[in-house]
């Protein structure tokens, strides 16, 4: 773009919040040098399995996202659910493993499914890092963690325009 301006479209408090959380997340998520990690792109190269609304396809997608989120696959399990009256927990700890509930109604668009899984896995990693789960900014922190983890493209494209979640 020839005429891109140099500006940010967020207020100072929001910018300062991101600036403060960024190094904290990099440290807590043990990311080190971000240039040594992949940024995950919505391409066949990163997601070679054919997508369809089947258990095999969602299990393949889940395994792929778990790998990209740098989470031990032996410690996570996907729990597919029929649509619930109330939103299920983002993740459920079971002994030393985590169950990630996912409603089958969330499987319509693979990019959105990846965003949902990435957010759950970000929460898992933040939980493991000892994050205070009562923090008011937890939803924002989960989104920012997805960016730090290289999975942010999916969450950004699924985000709302102006109102922070």
């Amino acid at each position: 773009m020839l005429f891109t301006k140099a500006r940010v479209h967020i207020d100072d408090a929001t910018r300062e919040w991101i600036d403060e959380q960024w190094p904290w997340l990099v440290e807590k998520l043990n990311m080190g040098d971000l240039s040594e990690h992949l940024i995950i792109e919505p391409t066949d190269e990163f997601f070679p399995h054919k997508w369809e609304p089947s258990r095999e396809a969602i299990e393949n997608l889940f395994a792929t996202v778990v790998e990209y989120a740098e989470v031990d696959p032996a410690r996570v399990e996907l729990g597919l659910l029929e649509p619930q009256d109330e939103m299920p927990a983002a993740l459920i700890k079971q002994d030393d493993k985590y169950l990630l509930p996912l409603e089958i109604s969330e499987l319509g668009d693979p990019a959105v499914t990846i965003a949902i899984l990435a957010r759950k896995l970000a929460l898992l990693r933040l939980t493991e890092a000892g994050l205070d789960m009562e923090r008011d900014d937890l939803p924002l922190l989960m989104d920012l963690a997805c960016v730090v983890m290289g999975l942010g493209i999916f969450n950004a494209n699924a985000a709302v325009p102006q109102v922070p979640r």
């Binding site: 940010v8 479209h9 967020i10 929001t14 910018r15 991101i18 600036d19 960024w22 990099v26 971000l34 240039s35 940024i39 924002l140 989104d143 920012l144 960016v147 730090v148 942010g152 969450n155 950004a156 985000a159 709302v160 325009p161 102006q162 109102v163 922070p164 979640r165």
Partner: peptide
């Protein structure tokens, strides 16, 4: 996060890389 927040976060990500 909203779109402008993502824009700033991705700019930080690019800078870090």
């Amino acid at each position: 996060m909203n779109w402008p927040m993502y824009g700033y976060a991705f700019a930080k990500y690019a800078k870090a890389r």
